[in-house]
Design a protein around this nucleic acid. Structure first.
Length: 460
RNA sequence: UCCCCAGUAGCUCAGUCGGCAGAGCAGGUGGCUGUUAACCACCGUGUCCGUGGUUCGAGUCCGCGCUGGGGAGCCA
């Protein structure tokens, strides 16, 4: 007999004569002649209540079932006479697969997120983390769905790279050299003898490679891991995280913003429609304003505001900021949050930033002062998307590289794309974990990653 | 990297002015019960993060370190 998932039987319209379910005991309560077992198999948030009566031949063993134990249950599903659940299973046979000893760290009461982080291998067994990681899975699917339905091609850009990309952050170096005794020449480590014959790193962005494919396949997206060796100790940064980076040929900044807005709205809508039960847990226990936040994102057209106007608004707001605002200053977290949370109270797309604070690949505007960059700012999270129209004019790109100290020689292949049939194109990057935080109300990035990596922490 | 806060039982926490370490939950035993974070009674539990100091006496005060958290920077 094949096991049925608890999610499947809970959504049944009618009783079932005989079912086989398998799962883990969440809690057990004894009555006089029988025992209630709350069973969860991870297929959904809800448990199913199993009635084990004392006629079962191994009832003495069943009475020892503790939280975390695994069992296999055969029985009939019928309407529950008790309050609190529609269905329950009356067991005809219960096999104890494995007992969890009483040092099982998860109790049926609430634990703190900090404690659960120390047992990352067990926390998916809790309601909250089970829900978070089911939502993470659904969102991954929705990302593919969005782009595939629009005819985009999924490109797997390399994780090991030879270039330091856009200088997007500190790099994790990858080497097979003996680090205690590396080969040296002219007083420096000689990487000619390293595995790839030169220095190699973990990727900080797939964008430049993504552009090459957009300029061949038209519309593409990447979705994969990214690594930053920055000593960032905040609740919004991890050393290993996932990014989605679409790149569109024949696309200007306005269309880029259209895609970004449509993308976020699609994902929020997808979760509301497909993760209702799990979402409810977060709306109830994690963030009471979650549903209204998500509805605002889904229904309101995102504000589009040039950087220069944002500077004016911030200066006229009368609010005292820790960092001064003036044209040429990078907007700080406090400024972005003020705009999204206090001034507009909804998502805002800022665009046309000063060229001095943005990387070399962004397209120079006609004013010669700003570049065609855009950031999507959402309440509570801040920047969730950063993107731009790329500089497609070879001479201007080369000048910008020289000005910002990016090696032309190393990026010969990137420059080739502007040499041969260059076209206007745009793209953006979305931090996947920040999206999950936005959608669930979870405030620490460590709690939306199965096994988070942060400075000084790689236990699992 | 900088600023601030915290570290006490398996977990969540209290601990007054520096004077014998204490609750709830979890666990054990018994009872009761179509229960649902069940309930009632009884029972056990400590490197008070580490280290150095002040003091007759330190969980409590001071220095240093470690770990965790919040905020900032860097960014997604």
């Amino acid at each position: 007999m094949k096991r049925t998932r608890i999610k499947t039987i809970l959504s049944s319209e009618k009783p079932i004569d005989l079912v086989l379910i398998k799962g883990w005991v969440r809690t057990r309560r004894d009555s006089r002649t029988f025992s209630f077992i709350e069973l969860n198999d991870g297929s959904c948030l809800n448990n199913i209540q199993v009635i084990a009566d004392d006629l079962l031949k191994n009832y003495e063993q069943i009475k020892k079932l503790s939280t975390g134990s695994s069992v296999s249950v055969k029985g009939t599903m019928h309407e529950s006479p008790g309050k609190g659940q529609k269905w329950e299973i009356h067991a005809s046979e219960i096999e104890v697969i494995s007992l969890a000893p009483d040092d099982y760290p998860l109790q049926k009461k609430r634990h703190t997120d900090e404690f659960l982080r120390t047992i990352s291998h067990l926390r998916p067994r809790t309601n909250k983390y089970g829900a978070a990681f089911r939502i993470r899975s659904k969102l991954s699917y929705a990302i593919h769905r969005f782009f595939q339905d629009l005819g985009f091609t999924y490109v797997q850009t390399p994780i090991l790279t030879g270039s330091d990309c856009e200088g997007a952050g500190e790099l994790f170096q990858v080497t097979t050299l003996d680090i205690d005794n590396p080969p040296r020449s002219n007083g420096k480590t000689d990487y000619q003898n390293d595995f790839f014959g030169k220095t190699a790193n973990l990727t900080v962005s797939g964008q430049l490679e993504g552009e090459m494919f957009a300029l061949a396949l038209g519309d593409i997206y990447t979705f994969g891991p990214t690594f930053r060796a920055e000593n960032s100790n905040t609740s919004r940064h991890a050393s290993e995280f996932w990014m989605v980076e679409p790149e569109m040929a024949f696309c200007d900044l306005a269309e880029d913003m259209d895609y970004a807005e449509k993308f976020i709205k699609f994902l929020v809508d997808y979760v509301i429609k497909n993760c209702a039960e799990d979402l409810e847990l977060f709306a109830k226990f994690v963030d009471k304003t979650l549903m209204s936040t998500l509805e605002t994102i889904g229904s309101k057209k995102f504000i589009r505001l040039p950087y220069s106007e944002a500077v004016t608004i911030l200066n006229q707001s009368g609010k005292k900021f820790n960092y001064d605002v003036f044209f040429g200053a990078d907007l700080q977290t406090e400024h972005e949050r003020f705009l999204a949370e206090n001034h507009f109270k909804q998502p805002v797309i800022l665009y046309d930033y000063p060229k001095t604070i943005k990387p070399f690949y962004m397209r120079l505007n006609d004013d010669d002062k700003t570049v065609a960059a855009m950031d999507v700012i959402v309440p509570r999270i801040g920047e969730i998307i950063g993107g731009s129209q790329r500089e497609d004019r070879l001479e201007l790109l080369e000048t910008r590289m020289d000005d910002t100290g990016v090696s032309r020689e190393e990026h010969w292949w990137y420059l080739d794309s502007r040499r041969y049939g260059s076209v206007p194109h745009s793209g953006f990057g979305l931090g996947f974990e920040r999206l999950i935080m936005l959608v669930t109300g979870i405030t620490n990035i460590r709690d939306v990653i199965p096994f988070p990596r942060t400075p000084g922490s790689i236990e699992f």
